[in-house]
Write a protein that binds this DNA or RNA. Structure first.
Lengths: 346, 346
DNA sequence: GTTAGCACTCTCCGCCTGAGAGTGCCAATG
DNA sequence: CATTGGCACTCTCAGGCGGAGAGTGCTAAC
């Protein structure tokens, strides 16, 4: 019938009603249900006609002839976009979250881990927090501890308070005293240098000091080269994986297993999350938009957060395509705001 | 019929056959199956009689009249004990494990995390490794890093190479230089003191130096008191939780959920594992012997490992009661041996 | 003591059926 | 002519039934 891509007001209302209803019940919704629950003053028959149109346009689908309708991915997408259009009014801060952030966090990793918990427990989805990339951090302090023989423990603290540790093997064996001196050297030289730049910085310094008038510094530099030359894996905090057990669409053990598998092998996930990081801001990936075959029944709602020194990470939730976007989206955004705030204080 | 608690040779053979068979197939085993698979030269009828006796004695049970038999917990216990009696011959080192430990581990935590992976992937059960209790470690090195205001990052290294970190809040704000001096002080004074003793050591020293002729030391001591006075949670490494999805007995979502829940809240688990630690050596907890209501269909196979400086922890697997004890037990024991070996080298 | 035979029990699977939910279409209506 | 009521049609789901299969328990024979 109606062949224009634009939907008229009434069709939109019905589409939204179907999506809402399906999100709430996880069952195909019939025309009768809509006409009763939402007082649009339309008879079931009329609604049936409109639903048939919506199906033809690709927004709804049918599990079988005599069942109700449910949204396609295109239907969800339309729904989410219309949510975002009306967002300003929705933006009441989700209750309770603010209180959670009243406590003090002494370490960034604690804050992020806690945030993934908050996200998962408030949305019944999987909470995900991607830590700031290490290269984006600013050097603050380094410590070298002699372990045994040629092994040295390196503890590195960034200005925003993240702590990394790493054991490296070196060719010579230094006493703890020597290591302390070297650490002091490095701390003096690298203060506030961003890590992504530290390798260049290192090379510069080594070239300058080729005359080796300061042998200790030279050694320290060589050691720190070892520390900074292996690429770091971005840390990701995941919480509430078990939440998906409670969603009826994952009762099928096979589907569930596939999803758990993806979380076990995090690489694939990180690729997607990294993509969400680019550009910044809110991202909603619906169903197969997330490119991971096994996760084609899941949606991602993510946004970016920023730390005081403009280092950025990403947080959000992963849940069934049939998730409560209308509450999840504001919650994710609000959480990101809180995290940014907390980080700027640290 | 046979009312003596002792089983005769033949009954034992049949009990073992039933257990073996049930472990392999996860289905109640009938008399016919036994008489065909194990050539005991007995007809199904005879075996039926014996099985009825074993049932009366509490070793076997019946899901319903016309089904085969399966072991009760008492049956499993008998089976495991007879395995242990014959153990010396079973003790061929499980292939492949040794190779896994050919690599170098620079940190204890890496070794233990890796071990939990090894355990889970080789047994299709959940791998569990309890780290040595912190109080059992020997002091090696401490580092203090100024974070901001009154927050200090404390990094503590034990002689066996474990690294702990902790952020503490102090009343005064010290410069990094001061902190370095204090750390050096503490390193001199506490070298090789066992941690469980360090609090006494501290108090002693503070009493001795009451005259405060060394103000710096005094401050350092007060700071370190803060560090060592909060009790540490023992770290536990768990891997392969998803393995239980593949065991048919946990297809029931409810059971599975209960088990996952227990792992989420680790406290309960740690209590049990701590109990296994006491006394040392191999422990097999079958079904409800593990005291955790939700885990009554699971068995624990654990043993202790020891580090070079006699610090001890525990490792093992958790799986369905119907697990392959005959291969799991030697594997757990062998792994513990390897871990002890690796630790003594570190 | 061991075994063959046989009746009995219980589960599992496929088949059928009726109820219920929902659609699609058609004709009537304002 | 958009909307609506009515009605036939389709599909799922739950329950009941029955036969096949597996296994037991008992008894009588070896």
């Amino acid at each position: 019938m109606l062949k224009s891509t634009k939907l008229d007001e009434r069709s939109m209302q019905i589409l939204q009603a179907v999506v809402n209803c399906y999100i709430a019940t996880a069952e195909p919704v019939g025309s009768r249900t809509i006409s009763r629950k939402y007082n649009l003053n339309l008879s079931p028959a009329t609604i049936r006609n409109i639903m048939a149109d919506l199906e033809e346009l690709g927004y709804l689908k049918h599990p079988h002839t005599s069942a109700g309708r449910l949204p396609t991915e295109q239907g969800y997408r339309f729904y989410v976009e219309s949510l975002n259009r009306e967002r300003p009014q929705l933006q009441k801060p989700p209750a309770g979250i603010e209180k959670c952030y009243n406590q003090k966090f002494s370490e960034v990793s604690d804050l992020l881990r806690y945030t993934s918990k908050i996200l998962s427990s408030n949305t019944h989805c999987i909470g995900v927090v991607l830590a700031p990339r290490i290269e984006d951090m600013l050097f603050k302090h380094i410590n070298l501890v002699h372990l045994r023989d040629n092994l040295v423990l390196v503890v590195f603290v960034s200005r925003s308070g993240s702590v990394q540790q790493k054991v490296i093997e070196i060719s010579e064996s230094y006493t703890q005293d020597k290591l302390d001196q070297m650490a002091r050297c490095l701390n003096d030289h690298f203060k506030d240098v961003p890590l992504f730049n530290i390798r260049n910085h290192l090379l510069d310094m080594m070239r300058q000091d080729k005359q080796l008038y300061d042998k200790l510094l030279q050694r320290a530099l060589r050691l720190s080269q070892k520390v900074f030359d292996s690429p770091e894996v971005t840390k990701v905090y995941i919480d509430g994986q078990l939440n998906i057990l409670n969603h009826p669409e994952f009762e099928d053990l096979k589907k569930m297993n596939a999803i758990f598998g993806t979380f076990e092998e995090k690489n694939q996930l990180i690729v997607i999350l990294d993509k969400c990081l680019e550009g910044g801001g809110l991202r909603v990936l619906i169903g197969s938009e997330n490119q991971i075959e096994q996760m084609k029944d899941c949606s991602f709602v993510t946004t970016t957060y920023n730390a005081g020194d403009s280092v950025m990470g990403m947080l959000g939730v992963i849940g069934p395509t049939r998730m409560e976007y209308s509450s999840v989206i504001p919650l994710v955004e609000y959480t990101a705001k809180m995290v940014s705030l907390m980080l700027s204080r640290m």
